[in-house]
Amino acid sequence: MGELWNCYGPTEATVWSLMARVELPLGEAGVLLRQSLDGYRHWLLDEHGEAVAVGGEGELCIEGPSLADGYWQRDDLTAQAFINCHGRRLYRTGDRVHRVGEDAYQYRGRRDDQIKLRGFRIELGEIEASLRRLVGVQDAAVRLHGEGDEACLVGYVELREAGALSRVAIRRELQRSLPHYMVPGRIVLLGCLPKTASGKIDRKRLPEPV
């Protein structure tokens, strides 16, 4: 029987920086990003550029001798993506991950998932993380639906077991931990969130709320 390996790394890091064999059967966290290759080190940073401990969520950054010098004739993009953090040159991948252990991460989505709704700047990933922390929730996604006065947040929730939580119960729990403007106006319960071939949430295939 063959082996399945999960390899992670952007072009800016000269491709792979994490590589590990996928252990079957998969645990609840699914396929993890883990085991830095020789010469690489991975950092998980919060929005203030501080290291995130095990159990936290932040942006995955890469340190290593194979990082690119930058983007050709795009000093602005280079300055945004390649940063100096406490004397270390890091590449900001833009990937949000949950640190499940030492050198082991669970992919959560992209850092770009930030929107503005009625004057409030909102991190969709923060709402998704709150949904995933609810007992009975397997996975979740949030997006902005509609425009202008009709715009509202929609939460898509995959439950561990059908009927484990109602839409009303989910919104009530979120109201305890999130400000009112971050609580989705609509909750859509799905048997399974649509995924891409690589296992990421396929946001383009999320259904329209009814």
Rank of each mutant, 00 (worst) to 15 (best):
Q80A: 14
V100K: 04
W5P: 02
Y8V: 06
C85D: 05
L90D: 00
A141H: 02
D202S: 08
R205V: 10
E123V: 04
M182C: 14
Y71I: 04
P10I: 05
R89I: 07
L60W: 03
C7E: 06
V168K: 14
M1Y: 06
V52M: 10
L18D: 01
Y71D: 02
D139S: 10
D46C: 09
G49T: 05
L178G: 03
G191C: 04
L153Y: 04
L189I: 12
V157C: 04
H48K: 13
R118N: 11
D75K: 12
S17Y: 03
E50C: 12
V54N: 03
G27D: 13
V154W: 08
V52W: 04
T11V: 14
D69G: 13
E57D: 11
G199E: 03
I201F: 01
M19I: 11
G58H: 02
C61Q: 05
V154L: 11
G199V: 02
G191L: 05
N84K: 10
G55A: 09
G39S: 07
V22M: 05
G101W: 00
C192N: 06
L67N: 07
L60P: 01
G87P: 04
R111G: 00
H98A: 14
L178S: 05
H48A: 15
V54W: 01
G49Q: 02
E47K: 10
A197T: 09
V183L: 08
V210R: 13
D112C: 12
V157F: 07
G191S: 11
L77F: 12
L117C: 13
N84E: 15
S17N: 14
E161Y: 02
A104D: 05
Y105K: 06
Q73P: 01
L165K: 07
S66R: 15
V142I: 10
R34G: 02
E158K: 09
H86Y: 08
G87M: 07
V168F: 09
A169G: 04
R34M: 10
W72C: 11
R99Y: 00
V210Q: 13
T196W: 06
R92C: 13
E63W: 10
Y107V: 06
